[in-house]
Design a protein around this nucleic acid. Structure first.
Lengths: 220, 220
DNA sequence: AATGTGTCTAATGTCGACAATCGACGAGCG
DNA sequence: CGCTCGTCGATTGTCGACATTAGACACATT
């Protein structure tokens, strides 16, 4: 791959950045004409991008009305994280035998690095390593269908996660939480692997809900 | 709701029917201009429909090249059914406590009807009741995110299932397979529920692959 | 004053035409 | 004779304009 050039893809990136940068807030309406004007292109690629963002779960589309940033209820957040846990839990469990000794070493190292970065306050670093860790975990699965859904959800949830990762866990918790996954894989206990991964995500979902509730109280 | 009138939705239905009716075969290319001409509309709604069909997994989109009916490899079929089993398994398991005595009675009756229809050779009836049965099962779950993915997969797999349901199971097998799910719910054994549902789908996926292999041998 | 109706506006849905790109075919070269 | 490269046709990507619809506002009516 050299570059992606189609306008549609650029629009997707643009909007995704707008969301991450908080220039767009949940509930906001995305007007095609306005976006087209801002980006100096026609509405066609904007609409294409909308359709794709819709499948990624990043925007809500209401026929004849418009596109909106979804307002996720606490329940929807929990549900999304739960679903991701179900998918990735199965992915890791079913691939657990394929992890080589070297893979496990690599995973342990990632957890080490994550812990170090967390203690050093390198938040950006923590998020990046966390992403690598989870990518590495699911990469051993060969179920493309499952991975596709998993990565879609991952993108959707990343927006939420990105805004709260600073307040979710303490450094030692971060390390411990991820270490538990590696440990369960080492133990080759399939039932436990699946459970640990599920809990991992449900816990994060719950924390995010809690943090959001806290923020909304202080803000309002 | 009175009717859905937007062209896009009509296009989606149209193409879906074309697929079910075998007027479109795996690997076929879907040319926008041609479809637009056939349906007497412009390419815009066709493209909109394509995007949606893509998210449903019913067509493959290759940038700058075109849209194709996916050629599912045996592995992809198994993977898709496995994934559906994972999703619905969790859905049913997590909702198992919400099934009332009446719900279970209704499920038992559906299985009875299914068995009767199967013995009577009412294939269409069997498929319909089977659909009702599975809808009823997952409807007790309240995880919208999970249900969304589940129903998308369901639509995608229905195309496959629809073409083979006549040769997959014997009447007594059909009844027994579905009865096992109801029985596991009655037993309130969460682990077993999830396992039974997963097996249910993996088995069907495997059968379809087997039947396809058989057909391709006889045809070629 | 509250409710229902009609109009008006702004946004989405659709259109036909043009531009950019991919795959195939064939000419030229080693 | 086989391979590379350029041209060509067909299809998708993009455009600007028009048609249609949802929602807001004002007015009339009870």
């Amino acid at each position: 791959m050299i570059v992606k050039k189609t306008y549609k893809d650029q629009v997707i990136d643009h909007i995704y950045q707008l969301i991450l940068a908080d220039h767009l807030k949940p509930g906001d309406r995305l007007k095609e004409s306005l976006l087209a004007l801002e980006m100096g292109i026609s509405r066609a690629p904007i609409r294409e991008a909308m359709k794709e963002l819709m499948t990624l779960g990043l925007i809500d589309y209401k026929p004849q009305i418009g596109n909106f940033l979804p307002i996720l209820t606490p329940k929807q957040i929990i549900d999304s994280y739960t679903t991701r846990g179900v998918l990735e839990g199965y992915a890791v469990m079913s691939a657990s035998e394929h992890f080589t000794r070297q893979d496990l070493k690599c995973l342990d190292r990632l957890v080490d690095d994550m812990g170090q970065a967390a203690k050093g306050g390198e938040h950006k670093q923590v998020v990046d390593i966390g992403g690598d860790f989870h990518d590495f975990l699911v990469a051993r699965s060969d179920n493309q269908q499952l991975l596709e859904y998993s990565s879609r959800l991952s993108l959707k949830l990343h927006v939420l996660f990105y805004k709260h990762w600073g307040m979710l866990y303490r450094p030692d918790e971060i390390e411990q939480r991820h270490r538990a996954i590696v440990t369960s894989i080492k133990a080759q206990d399939k039932v436990r692997i699946e459970q640990v991964v599920r809990d991992h995500y449900v816990e994060t979902g719950s924390k995010i809900v809690a943090v959001q509730a806290l923020n909304s109280v202080t803000v309002v």
